[in-house]
Every structure is written in C-alpha cells, then in structure tokens.
C-alpha cells in the first residue's frame, strides 16, 4: 500500500526511455515519502528481456505481465491490468510517459478509479496543501506542476482525496540515472487472465509500424533550431548544413513546424521535445513561452535574429542581430576556418 508506481512502456521487448526517466524520478519521490518504488510492464514475450532494463533504476518490486495480445498495446487489456492491480496494491502515486500510449491509458485508468490525473507535468514534488474551501490540511501530496493556457502560466495541481495521484510526463523532461542505493529488486509474474477480462481484446491491430527515431535531439550536446524567421522550407535547409559541420541536431519551433518548414518530430517546446544541450542556437525564433519551456535549461543560448527585441534574446547569452541568410553561412564559414 501507498507505494509509488511507474507504468513502463515497451516497443517489442525494449523499455521506453521515458519510463526509465520516470523510474529515476519515482525513486526520488519514494525515498522522500519513505515508501517503495514499484514498476509494472505488460507485453508479449517480455519475460527475461525487460527486467534488466527496469530494475537498475531502483525498483523494489516489478510486476511483469507477459501474455498474448498485450503487444502491440491496445487500451482495454492494459487498462484492466492497471485498474485491477491498483485495486489490490493501492498505490499513492502512479507515473507514466506523456506518450501516445500513456495519454491513451492514463485517462482511462483514472476514470475507472475516479482518481485525478495531470497531463504533461514538467516538475513533480512532494509538499503540503491547505484546502481553503474545506479547511482541511493534507501532508505529503504530489505537486503536479505543468504549464497551462498555451504555456503562459504554470499551475500546481494536487489530488487531495483520491488515490493514486496520477501524472504523465513527456520524454526528456526528467533525466534517467542508474540507482546507486539499495533496492529490493523483487520480480513477480502475475497470471494475466486474473487481471484481463476476456472481452478486453476488442481492438485488432492490423498493422503496426514503428521506425527508430531519425534524430537524437534529446541527447544532443549542440542543437541548431529554426523558427518562422527561416522563411521557407528551402531556407530551413541551411540549418541542416550548419548542424552537419557542428555535429549538431536540428530542432524547430512550433511556428516553423506549422508552416511546414520541417517535420513535427523535431519540434522543441512544451508540446514537443525538451532539450538540455550545451549549446542552443536559435535562428529566426521569436521565443514564445511554449518554445522557451523546452530549451531554457540549455547551458549556452545563442540567438540569431534580425529583431533586436525578440523575446528570446532576453534569455540568450549571445545575441547576433542580423538575418539568418547572412549569419548562418558565416557561422559555417568561420567554424570551418577556426576548428582545424
């Protein structure tokens, strides 16, 4: 009872990185609350393949559900597993990735258990809450902190009376780290039929096609990113040239993605990828709050913008006032000249 649970998502027999990031966060929360970290994973043919990808992040107990029809993921069987497991285990917190799977599963589970769920949290903390309306005080709740209103405000949400307190977190927002402390590392293999109703397999996956990510934005040490100011899809190509010489990855603002300059999987910001590179070069990006939310932790920020008053310049270490057409070729030229 009262433990912290993380739902681990898989593709085949590979555990998603976001789940490992959440295990690390979950471990910290469990330590702070003085409870155990439990993990749950469900798939087909995963026994023996997933344990070593989950336990090293400080898991005290891992529930592995291995059965047919549990991969590819569909809503109903995974919902059955979590709902019935949580009725037995009564966790106080449940975390899952704010992925397509997590955002399909989380709300269904929360509705079934009538528990609160907060999507896309950017911070999770433990703290107290005084409800001014009822006058009740609560100790050690999960603060679920997330941007709202298009990223213009940050709200701290709590679930005072319902358990588990559920939250989803996007990939890359938390950082994964192997656990140095001691965790129990118990693994159990519950009987799937005890948890999943026979009617659950109603959705048939006719075709499932997933490609490995075409980029490693999340882990890149240098990110070159473009906004609407790149002008066109052709103009945006300059960033790939710059990225190539700098061994960087290319990102984009939502405006650039919406304008069709670049694919949506490169979008950086509150509704895209969160990055923490050593150097972030923002080209033709004005700096809407929702974009800044995804890159503000970069060590060094360079802004290339023809507008000296662009909002992003406020958080930049270096501001180059000039057009991208002029500055980017110069960056390429002088990097080539000076790097050898």
């Amino acid at each position: 009872m009262d433990n912290v649970f993380v739902y681990c998502e898989i593709e085949g027999t590979v555990v998603a990185e976001v789940s490992q990031e959440l295990l690390t966060k979950g471990r910290k929360l469990a330590d702070e609350l003085g409870v155990e970290l439990h993990a749950v994973v469900a798939g087909t043919g995963i026994r023996g393949a997933v344990e070593s990808q989950i336990l090293p992040y400080g898991v005290d107990k891992l529930f592995v559900f291995d059965g047919k029809d549990l991969f590819p993921y569909t809503s109903a069987p995974h919902t059955d597993i979590l709902v019935n497991l949580f009725r037995e285990e009564k966790p106080q917190i449940c975390l899952m990735g704010a992925t397509v799977i997590g955002r399909d599963l989380g709300p269904r589970v929360s509705s079934s258990l009538t528990s609160g769920l907060t999507a896309d949290c950017t911070q999770l903390e433990i703290g107290d809450f005084d409800d001014v309306k009822t006058g009740k005080s609560y100790k050690n709740l999960l603060y679920q902190i997330r941007p709202a209103f298009g990223g213009n405000i940050v709200a701290t949400i709590v679930n005072p009376d319902h358990r588990p307190q559920m939250a989803t977190v996007r990939s890359g927002v938390m950082q994964k780290a192997l656990y140095a402390g001691k965790a129990r590392g118990e693994v159990v293999y519950p009987e799937v039929d005890r948890y999943v109703s026979p009617e659950a397999n109603v959705v048939k996956v006719l075709d499932h096609h997933v490609e490995a990510a075409r980029h490693n934005l999340k882990g890149a040490s240098i990110v070159v990113s473009g906004g609407y100011g790149m002008g066109s899809k052709e103009g945006f190509q300059m960033l790939f040239d710059l990225a190539k010489v700098l061994h960087a990855e290319v990102g984009a603002s939502r405006a650039a993605v919406d304008a069709g300059f670049c694919d949506a999987d490169r979008q950086i910001g509150q509704t895209g990828v969160t990055v923490h590179p050593k150097v972030y070069i923002a080209c033709g990006i004005s700096g809407q709050i929702q974009h800044i939310a995804g890159m503000q932790d970069s060590s060094i920020i360079i802004s290339v913008n023809s507008d000296p008053d662009a909002p992003i310049n406020k958080i930049a270490d270096y501001v180059i006032v000039g057009t991208v057409e002029e500055v980017i070729p110069k960056l390429i030229k002088y990097y080539k000249k000076n790097s050898k």
């Binding site: 990223g151 940050v154 701290t156 709590v158 800044i292 310049n313 406020k314 930049a316 270490d317």
Partner: peptide, 17 residues
Amino acid sequence: PTRVKTVQNIVFQAKES
C-alpha cells in the same frame, strides 16, 4: 478530484547577454 493549488505567471530569468 484535482485541485489547482497555485497558478503562476511565467517569468524567465533574464540573462546578461
């Protein structure tokens, strides 16, 4: 089930640039 504890405007720390 959820309650909004606090709402804050986002203020980014301006850097010396």
